[in-house]
Structures are given as C-alpha cells and as structure tokens.
Design a protein around this nucleic acid. Sequence first.
DNA 1: GTCTATACGGTGATAGAC
DNA 2: GTCTATCACCGTATAGAC
Lengths: 226, 226
Amino acid sequence: MIDARQKEMSGRSRAAQRAIRREQIIESTIRSINKVGFAETTLATVAKEAGVSQAGVVFHFKTKNALLIETLRHLSDAYNESWSSALAAASDDPVQRICALVAADFRPSICNRRIISVWYAFWGEAKSRPTYMKICGASDKARADAMRVECARLIGGGAENEQEWSDTVDLIDGLINGMWLQLLLDYATFKRSDALRIMQSQLQRVFPDHADMIAHEFEKVKVRSA
Amino acid sequence: MIDARQKEMSGRSRAAQRAIRREQIIESTIRSINKVGFAETTLATVAKEAGVSQAGVVFHFKTKNALLIETLRHLSDAYNESWSSALAAASDDPVQRICALVAADFRPSICNRRIISVWYAFWGEAKSRPTYMKICGASDKARADAMRVECARLIGGGAENEQEWSDTVDLIDGLINGMWLQLLLDYATFKRSDALRIMQSQLQRVFPDHADMIAHEFEKVKVRSA
DNA sequence: GTCTATACGGTGATAGAC
DNA sequence: GTCTATCACCGTATAGAC
C-alpha cells in the first residue's frame, strides 16, 4: 500500500502530491465512517485506513472537524459533478434532460451503500452543525434549480404554473431520496434496478405525454449499466 | 424541574416510577441529539438535560449503548403506534386506509424536525451498527406490509399484480421519506403543508379513479391540523 | 435510587527528530 | 512531510456513601 502510494506520488508537482494525499485521507475517512460509523470515527481510525500516522492526518487538515467538512465537500463535489456532466451530455430536449438528471443520481459511482450511508451520517449531524447544513443545502439547491429549469420548460413557463413546477421538482427529488434510503436500509431485497424501474414509471405518470421518450431514455441507462 | 419530577413520581408504583424516569432520560437523549448531535452526545449531555447525575443515567440503562438503542426503540414504538392507531380509526375502504397511513406520517407529533433529525442520526449510524439496522428494518417492514395489504386490495389481489403493489408501496413510502428529508434540510421554505399537498396530488396520480375520495380525506387532515 | 469521587482508556492536538 | 512520543482533557463506567 505504501509502495503504491509512493509510486502514485513520483513525478508530480508538490501541489499535486498534496492534493492526492488529501484525497487519499478523505477516502479513508469515508471508509472509516462505513466501517465504524460517524460517531466512532477518530483520527486514529482514519489514519489507520490511510496508512499514515495520526499526526499525518492532522498535518494535512489541521483539525478533525476540518477533515470532516472537507469529506462532506468531497461528497458534494462528486455529486454535483455527476449531475452536471450528465446534463452537459444530454440533448436540449427537456424530457431527455430530466431523465438524465434522474439517472445520474443512480449511477453506481454516486449511488451505492458506501456513499449513501455517509450522506446519511452527515444529514443526521446537520441539524446541530450549521456548516454541514450549509454545504448540504447549497448542494441540494443547485441540483433542484437545474431540475426546476427543465420542469418549467416542459410544463410551461408562465408564472401561473410556478407551484406546479416547484411541486414536480420536490416530488421527483423527494422520491429519489426515498429510493436512496431504501437502498441503504433494505439492501437485501431492494436493488438499484428496482429504484430505476420505479423512477421510470413515476416519471411516465408525471409526464404521460412523454412516456415513450422516457422509456427510451431509461432503456439507454439499462444498457449502459449492464 | 426536580420538583416537577418528584410531583410526577408520587403516588405511583415502583415499576411505574422506573418507567417514567427511563422515559424522561430517553426524552433527554433526544433533546441532546438535537442540540449537540449524535456524535457529541455523551452521558454528561444527557444527564444535564435530564437533571440527574451521570451515574443516574447509567443506573437506569447500564451502558450508553443500551440507552441509545432504547432511544431508537422509543422512536420506533411511537412511529408504529401512530400508524397503527390511524389504521384502526379508519374505515374499511382501502383508499381511506391508504390516506390514513400517509397522513399519519405527517402528524406533528411524528413529523417534526426534532424527531426527524434523530431518525436521520440513527439511519446514518445504522450501516455500522447491526442492532440499529434491525430495529429500523423491523419498523419499516411492519409499516410497509400494512400499506401493501391496502394497495393489493385496491389494485387487485392476483399474483400477476404483485410487482405493481410492491412498486406502488415503495413509491408512496419512498416519497414520504423524501418529504421528511426536505423538511429536515429545507425547513425555511418547505413546510408540512407543502409535503401534504404533494402527497395528495401524488396519490391522486397513482389512483386516478379515486381522486375525489383522496381529496376528501386530505381535507379532513387539513381541518384537523388547522 | 441518587449522589460524589475516581479509575482507566482513548481522543485531539502538539513538539521535535529525521 | 512524515514519523514517534507525549500532553492535557474528556469519555464511559464503577465504587461506595447516603
């Protein structure tokens, strides 16, 4: 492990090395939260996962709290990158863009128990830690706004429909979060494919005029993950 | 505070006194998780909230871990009692029973940030603590089964429809969880009334033949909480 | 049953060698 | 940059008086 690390380091600038080492430690924090839980995660458990000393962790993040905040930001960045790139790759059609946004939240890299459990750990602490709250809120809002734009285009942009877009976005995004919780808790019987099937039929119910295109878009997702 | 406690104690059996004191400490645990978070909740913070000594908390629950498990069980019991009583009070009509189950999850006593944040704290720890997982899973399953019965009656009980009930239940319950998360994180702009409105319109979409009765049932909820 | 006092281990963070 | 050694503190849990 130490060899692999050193190999990865060689031939890079100082700044790049620093960034890589920080990311390694953040990944170790995620692993630790998975193994022993958020409450039991200490500098020692993180250091052990990362294969560095406890002081090494502090050197790179100053304090434990800063490390946890950076870990949350890392999750948030990865999430934002995922839906942004999905949107960038999609056509201009709002139905396709909505499907792309939904499908992005079920990509294996984003949507797996390892990551979901960490999100839940931070959400659980968010009420008592304003910084977590802010990061989670900003991440959620950016994504919801992206979805709002597409729903507004599809439903009709007049102000008289504003509550309808707004509710449609809350409905779709809320359902995604519900699927995530079920993937976390009911992992023995509930799979990503179940979640995707439910999301597809729900989108078809919400946008019955575009049922065929939605089916077509979800077929593509199924092919990609097969 | 101590006077109020002693007043509550007088004239009760030993067992009842014990139960009351235990419940007071559990309530204090919930308050502590709200104030300082799950990770920072210690015997000291709980004891301070409860107005007893640290050793007093241990006396009643043996260990901190046992206290946390009892706290989760307390949440779970309250939740189960809520939907069970709602079901018992409902008529025999499946639509009314489904509405009753949904509305029960948005009762102020069950659905408020104080309680939701504690649920999220436990969900966040669940992956690394099998006992939490088991309690959460059992609670979820009982409730989902209750919903499944009603959906099966409404959709048609043949085996050929099984995936349809199952998905419908996952859809409704998933959406409820999504609404809870939004109530937790987006509390400034998203209210219980927003969640109820979205749930109503969603149920109407899922069961279009019963839209009128659903509207009627949700009117009753609105009147009750006004 | 409830308290005060305390044992004991672990925790976050620092100092200083290399 | 990374380590070992160390600190002061705080965590859980116990002992024993009342």
